[in-house]
Design a protein around this nucleic acid. Structure first.
Length: 565
RNA sequence: UGCCGGAUGGUGUAAUGGUAGCACAACAGACUCUGAAUCUGUUUGUCCUGGUUCAAGUCCAGGUCCGGCAACCA
């Protein structure tokens, strides 16, 4: 790895192993990794960490990273997942060229390897029922006992395995086991099952097979066939490593990849397990796998996260063997950082309060210049219509303001962004509720453009839209999925769904400037002083965009208020 | 009671026997036609007890605590 790449990416214990192997020419200088998802769910931000690790390491070393579907269990897998995974990895910005593979591509070879193991006397067909199997295995602190079928003659094993393959038996009737050591302190070495009977149609091989290899048997073979150099996986596979190595040694393969384990990503205030995500989707707690509240890649995409932000996040969380929780604030920081540079600014009023500028001529409209992105002068300027009746955000007015409130209050002058200084002199309230429903204001015509010729200053600048010209649109305001920071610290008697945030999505109607009528699905905006919004690609229609709030802007005033209360 | 890992501020991570650093968060302040961004500053840390060493977050010994492992899932 070059020094430059190091400083960009940082290093970690896995990259150090890879670098050392490069220096010692361990794999004749090549690096080949793989991202091996099982197509039984959608990818989430935790997968993104693994993707960035595997593809990143390969890219830095001028090697390659394979996209390989680990599709050895047809009963949970589906092409919908295959397609979504491919799409998500590509969207994140990675390229695997021709190297898209499937474990199922190797079923024939795996079968032959299993036969080889049987012939070596290292595998046998076991007739124990699943219950007996479990009983014989023992518990971590006590050794298991050997199956009565353990010493079945090789010929009989061969015959039985052949008949398993031919479909002569029911699911669960027989299983092929590796013959290792029932007394091993490592449970995975106690004659693990390596092939089971499953009369299920596979999304690729259809009904060709009714026996399928187990993960431990399949995965190392897949890696070996693809000549993977570094097989990177998560910590829970650490105890599987002896089995990974045992199988490849017994198979006497040429290529024996090195398995390296790292800690999976945990994020506060969300769920990160496929099982829980599936439950939320299937039982319609959310609208789908791409619900913007979910930490799935497709959900984040629909929320308005960018690939750049997600990759930067993955870079910042680092890679270790320490089981940790990353604060969701870091993810939010990363997307703000990216969107601040690239999102066009517009004005949008989320909770409209009508104001009338009494000394502004009725029927007059001025087109005022507004900057599209102060971080990027090349983004240019646009025209925003100004007229006598406007909307401002309710938050920006207080009848009886506390000390540090410097927005609109009775008698206090504020600036309307890109427009004029105004002053409020009359409040109109709903007779029944007492709620403020309209403000009567006056403007200073000499302050056009936001500066007073006499040099007087105003402390506050607020955003607005012209009532006559604005668009009335839907916006979805998203908040964290869970009310609980860490799911591993909750009451064990409770279900994680008890901690679903009832306010994780609030749909509102808001008023936005008319330029947004021309927007297209998938565009990012900053509603000034409010947050970043994304034009929903699913529900937006030409002329009537729907906005998803990606993340709010940081809000110093909210903090001051919080402290005061 | 078995095996495999792990432990550095609130959070994440660096330091590979030689000044405990960075980022997020928090808190101050500066600036500001976004209470944003930007800039400046501040607070907070090596699990414990011994040992080796001129020098230990790092090496050694013993402990403590935490995570993972007992699908014919991956």
């Amino acid at each position: 790895m070059s020094e430059e790449a190091k400083s960009e990416t940082g290093s970690d214990f896995i990259r150090e192993i890879v670098s050392r192997d490069m220096e010692t020419d361990k794999h004749s200088g090549t690096v080949r990794t793989r991202f091996p998802p099982e197509p039984n769910g959608y990818l989430h931000i935790g997968h993104a960490k693994s993707i960035c690790l595997n593809f990143g390491i390969a890219a830095e070393a001028n090697g390659e990273c394979h996209l390989r579907y680990d599709d050895t269990n047809p009963s949970t897998e589906d092409v919908e997942y295959v397609d979504s995974i491919r799409n998500d990895v590509r969207w994140l910005g990675w390229d695997w060229g021709e190297n898209e593979f499937y474990a199922s591509d190797y079923f024939e070879q795996m079968y032959l390897y299993a036969v080889k193991l049987i012939k070596k006397g290292k595998a046998y067909v076991c007739t124990l029922s699943p219950e007996e199997f479990k009983e014989y295995r023992g518990i971590p602190t006590k050794p298991g006992k050997e199956s009565p079928w353990r010493n079945r003659p090789i010929d009989e094993n061969l015959d039985l395995f052949e008949r398993m393959k031919k479909g002569e038996f029911q699911d669960g009737e027989y299983v092929l086991r590796a013959k290792i050591d029932m007394a091993s302190p490592n449970i995975h070495m106690r004659d693990p099952a390596i092939y089971r009977i499953k009369h299920a149609s596979h999304h690729r091989t259809l009904d060709k097979w009714c026996i399928y290899p187990m993960y431990d048997f399949a995965h190392c073979i897949e890696d070996s066939i693809e000549r993977i150099t570094h097989s990177i996986c998560t910590l829970e596979f650490e105890v599987h490593r002896p089995l990974y190595d045992w199988i490849l040694n017994e198979l006497e393969v040429e290529c024996h990849p090195q398995q390296i384990e790292f800690a999976r990503l945990n994020l506060t205030y969300t769920v990160m397990s496929k099982r829980k995500l599936l439950e939320l989707v299937k039982n319609q707690y959310v609208v789908g796998w791409d619900d913007p509240r979910l930490p799935t890649i497709s959900g984040l995409r629909r929320r308005g996260y960018t690939p750049e932000a997600i990759r930067e996040f993955c870079r910042r969380v680092g890679v270790t063997k320490f089981n940790s929780y990353t604060e969701i604030e870091l993810l939010e920081y990363c997307v703000r950082e990216d969107l601040n540079k690239h999102a066009l600014r517009v004005m949008g009023v989320l909770d409209p309060l009508k104001i009338v500028i009494e000394n502004y001529p009725d029927g007059k409209t001025e087109m005022l210049d507004a900057v599209n992105n102060p971080e990027d002068p090349s983004a240019g300027i646009r025209k925003v219509p100004f007229s006598r009746e406007l909307y401002v955000d309710s938050d920006d007015f207080m009848e009886n303001p506390p000390k540090k409130f410097f927005r609109l209050t009775p008698g206090n002058e504020v600036r309307l962004r890109y427009a004029y200084f105004i002053k409020c002199h009359k409040i109109i309230k709903d007779m029944k509720t007492g709620k403020v429903i309209e403000l009567r204001c006056t403007y200073d015509p000499d302050t056009l453009g936001g500066q007073a010729p006499d040099g007087r200053k105003v402390k506050g600048t607020i955003h607005w839209v012209s009532a006559k010209h604005c668009l009335d649109v839907e916006a979805r305001m998203y908040d964290r999925l869970l009310t609980q920071e860490r799911l591993d610290e909750v009451d064990e008697n409770k279900d994680f769904k008890d901690y679903l945030n009832p306010k994780s999505m609030q749909v509102i109607r808001c008023k936005v400037e008319p330029s947004l009528a021309e927007t297209k699905a998938g565009a990012h905006y900053q509603f000034e002083r409010k947050g970043y919004f994304f034009v929903d690609p699913v529900d937006s229609k030409p002329g009537t965009p729907v906005f998803n709030q990606t993340v709010s802007l940081k809000d110093a005033w909210a903090k001051i208020q919080k402290k005061g209360s």
